[in-house]
Nucleic acid binder design. Structure first.
Lengths: 210, 210
DNA sequence: GAACGATGCGGAGGTATTCTCCGGTTTGCC
DNA sequence: GGCAAACCGGAGAATACCTCCGCATCGTTC
């Protein structure tokens, strides 16, 4: 559609290559050090100057947003998969929230900038989050119409819960058992008593009604 | 007992005064700017040099720990009050967790350093947290013996939940309704279905069985 | 009350990090 | 091949955390 090079002088190849190289390096660096790692260190590891890094990504948020792009698409895919393969609205919402938690913990320390981004309107991360909040709202509404989710809860609250769960799971004190507990508690937080008898420890039992 | 000035040459008065002045200033500063505010700014506002600030409190954590001291005692008081005035273990645990959330949100951004402190053994904040985790464990065990709380949950998980709830409530997106939702979801997270029929919106109904 | 030793004070400054500015170079287009 | 636009990269400004050390102040002792 907008591919016509009208007024846009075609992006230079070296810039394009630098950009993707930066993304590769940042992906690895953030995986190792967490998202709070030094920007200049990324530039140095990529063999470029700070200026180049900041030209491509004006701040940490922009870099993070670009890094998350691929995972965003994966998460969108997960969404349509759940929509098509899971008919039970309760299970669908639960699976979606699990996917959200996984997305939110893609990098160590990611929940913090996400929460911060929710406060600022123009942030690229905020846009992404807003989309996922809307999706959460969809799944939630379906579950509520089935009577499987409490009516007082809103999509943003569930999204915040997922974010908070991911944040808490990142604590050094939190082991695998804690993470499971937190997820389970979150689930019985929105589910009604009437909905499916799974109280806590059922490990997402892949019950696709194919 | 250890008041005998053996080997300790009695603390100087000006130092003591400086210390409490720093605490006053920091209290106000953190209340305005959140706990991530600049240390040097606190020193400047207190009219002292950074060196003096850091002599009294070697780092931000120590300063925070000292600031929280008063509130810690208030929280301990709340604990004994709950223990004496509330016989229902479910309600007691719920009240305690509400008090914890309030403590955790005493300053804007406080949950973050608390979570970080849990990772480091020698931190003064970690000690405090550990005490409250133990208290949480006590309330939880009582509730579990009444069959009012799920047996799989641990005290640390509940503490983490409270911390995470406070963290999420600090998001700009979170309004009062979100905070209430989060607390309600947390509660139905640990409570069994059998325990009291209060699902969400009961506003802590002061039912002291005197 | 005066001198002395221990203790506290405070600012200069080292290190780290984020981000900007600008001269020099490379690239794409004609 | 030449030109203008875009890009590169490092120097460096701004800020924050924290340390070091000469000097001042306090408490004690004579």
């Amino acid at each position: 559609m907008e591919e016509a090079p009208i007024g846009t002088r075609k992006p230079r190849l070296d810039a394009e290559r630098n950009r993707s190289h930066i993304l590769d390096v940042a992906e690895q660096y953030f995986s190792e050090q967490g998202v709070a790692g030094s920007m200049d260190a990324i530039a140095k590891r990529a063999g470029i100057g700070p200026g180049t890094l900041y030209r491509h990504f004006p701040n940490r948020e922009a870099l993070l947003a670009a890094l998350l792009q691929a995972r965003n698409e994966a998460l969108e895919g997960r969404r349509t998969a759940i929509e098509h393969e899971v008919s039970d609205a309760t299970e669908a919402l639960a699976l979606w929230l699990d996917a959200l938690i996984e997305w939110v913990t893609a990098f160590d320390g990611l929940p913090e900038p996400l929460r911060a981004a929710l406060s600022e309107e123009g942030s690229p991360l905020a846009l992404t989050c807003q989309g996922f909040i809307t999706t959460t709202e969809c799944f939630l509404r379906a579950a509520q119409e089935e009577g499987a989710a409490l009516p007082g809860v809103r999509g943003r609250d569930l999204f915040l819960s997922a974010l908070a769960t991911g944040w808490a799971s990142g604590a050094a004190m939190a082991d695998e058992s804690s993470a499971r507990s937190l997820r389970a508690m979150m689930r019985s937080g929105w589910a009604t008593r009437a909905s499916g008898e799974a109280p806590a420890d059922r490990p997402t039992p892949e019950s696709a009604p194919e």
